[in-house]
Design a binder for these strands. Structure first.
Lengths: 332, 332
DNA sequence: TTTGCATATGTAACCGGTTACCCAATTCAG
DNA sequence: CTGAATTGGGTAACCGGTTACATATGCAAA
């Protein structure tokens, strides 16, 4: 370990006190006279001493770090989430141990095992991992908070309010006179994709049971959105609104429609989900999620769990906001 | 520390062997018979044991973690860089200890101090921190690699090849017949902004010394680009090319020009730097930087330093690629 | 058979902190 | 002036691993 040459015993020797007193001075625990404090501090500065955190962790059984296990994801969502987590964690004096897991359950196992003993708790986002697999990987007794992950075995969980967001958007489309709303869904095993598709069906059933329901399944990327849009064009465009499972799909659709000479929003409305920065530039109506807030809240819940493990597990929804732009409504 | 119920002694007892043998099995060090290995592994699985890393760090004096100190930045750049670092680090069995520093030198101090004894080395990106401040904060003897940071006191350093990228873009603009190229610069204390402005001046001096040089200073955001573009419009648009210090400024300029009825690229070419995802959608010519590669390379250099500290410090440039789109040239 | 050597395993010291517990000195009450 | 209470400080056990060294076992060579 780098920079650990000087130990507490060296400081104690130079200061002329015992290691216990040095420790007491440094941790401001226990009683010490001012003279003791002074000579200890002098020795600390003279030697450039700083405590070895591994040793401290070992004996206190706390590491002042929280583990963050995230899927291999791109762009804004990742950075905003980490920003939120980091902000809240460092406010409480915690550092972040970060690990991306790459879809593969074995890697998830490995990542979580590697964190054992180095973190006081973990924030896990594993939308692609089944509940049983996750629970097996999670060291038992490890405080954990889940973000957007299936199940909630004894842990606090946070979810994006997919249902609320989708329902609001469906409501908006219906309000603006759309009658044949088709949903572009993401891959089935993706948790968000699943929830959003579900929400679309429920919203339609509740708000407009007389209208047709149609889901085209793809993947959460631009190319997939483009391909599905092309399919609709080939069919003669039997729709007046596309509600995509995320923004990238929506953008793919948007471009394909425009290139094919279809006017948006006049002929077809296009809506997405996520409010990626691109959406604003391309005037895409979408649903915005407070990602920084999600991360911050996850840390709060985790700290709560770590301090008083007896809380019954809660699932909270992070709220969403409807962002209406030109892709679903005529300019005002 | 959470989840530490089972220790190596429990495993040893259940397996009927000593802790030394268990350790040998788990670390694949020393000789063990197949039967020993088997019973140890059985006990490990039965108990769900995984070693306490703090204890291991303490006795081996290595933490198998690297610290990552990054500025508070947004979007793609952050996620791609972390992705690159994480990929290379986890391949070599290292975890990431992450800390955002928020421009403030005191926070940088604090972040680095907190990493002492928990990491085997650090990757620091602190473009806004003066060299002396950074060196004071960095624990002595701590292996470090710098990314895009001023100075390189005894450390390996990585830089985006701002000069090369800007020069290539200036060359392209000149080749396509532009004669009055103005540079929109970022804030002076931003290291990249500074380098890019410098590079613009040098490229002009070298490639077209007879042409006018003009720099408008702003900040690295869209609003600033828009404001500067408006200023040029108010002046009667005495330019035929805008080379912005980054993509966001370029996009701000692009929108403002278009809204004012200026045709791009016919009347004015607009170029950026970074190749953010938006650039592709909005057909902005720009310079792309291999961010993932930057992160990966940083880890490689760091590991090298940690293993053989005697290398003379090197500074490497990560290469850039000219991305030509419609904002600087007519459709082919 | 004895010596020798390789090999597998066990014992216990050690990493560098924290802290329970003990002791000595001082203060205070009666 | 004595005994009790208070207080600052020291000793050493402990956290959970790793590993140098000691030991035991088996087998080959002499």
């Amino acid at each position: 370990m780098a920079g650990s040459a000087v130990t507490i015993r060296d400081v104690a020797r130079l200061a002329g006190f015992s290691v216990a007193s040095v420790s007491r001075v440094l941790n401001e625990s226990g009683k010490v006279t001012d003279e003791t404090r002074e000579s200890v501090m002098k020795a600390v500065n003279a030697l450039g001493y700083s405590p070895n955190i591994a040793a401290r962790s070992l004996s206190t059984a706390r590491s002042q770090a929280i583990g963050v296990v995230l899927p291999d994801m791109h762009g804004e969502f990742f950075s905003e989430l980490v920003r939120g987590i980091d902000r809240a964690a460092s406010e409480s004096g915690y550092l972040l141990l970060l690990s991306n897991i790459h879809a593969d359950p074995a890697m998830a196992d490995h990542a979580l095992a590697a964190m054992r003993g180095r973190v006081d708790g973990v924030i896990v986002m594993a939308p692609q991992l089944a509940e049983t697999e996750r629970e097996r990987a999670l060291p038992r007794g490890m405080p954990a908070v889940l973000i957007n992950s299936p199940g909630n075995q004894g842990h606090h969980a946070l979810r994006i309010d997919n249902a609320g967001g989708v329902k609001a958007m469906v409501g908006h489309l219906l309000d603006t006179g759309r009658r044949t709303i088709v949903h572009f869904g993401g891959a089935r095993q993706n948790f968000d994709a699943f929830e959003r598709q579900q929400a679309y069906r429920e919203a339609m059933a509740e708000l407009a049971p007389e209208l047709p329901v149609r889901v085209l399944e793809g993947t959460f990327d631009e190319a997939s959105g483009a391909a599905l849009a092309q399919r609709l064009i080939d069919e003669g465009l039997p729709v007046d609104a596309i509600l995509a499972g995320n923004d990238m799909m929506a953008l793919g659709a948007l471009f394909t429609l425009r290139n094919a000479g279809v006017s948006v929003p006049e002929q077809v409305a296009v809506a997405g989900f996520d409010d990626v920065p691109l959406a604003r530039f391309l005037d895409l109506s979408t649903v915005s999620v407070d990602i920084v807030g999600l991360g911050t809240r996850a840390v709060e819940l985790l700290l709560e769990t770590m301090n008083a493990a007896t809380q019954p597990p809660r699932t909270e929804l992070s709220n969403t906001r409807l962002i209406l732009r030109a892709s679903t409504q005529k300019a005002t």
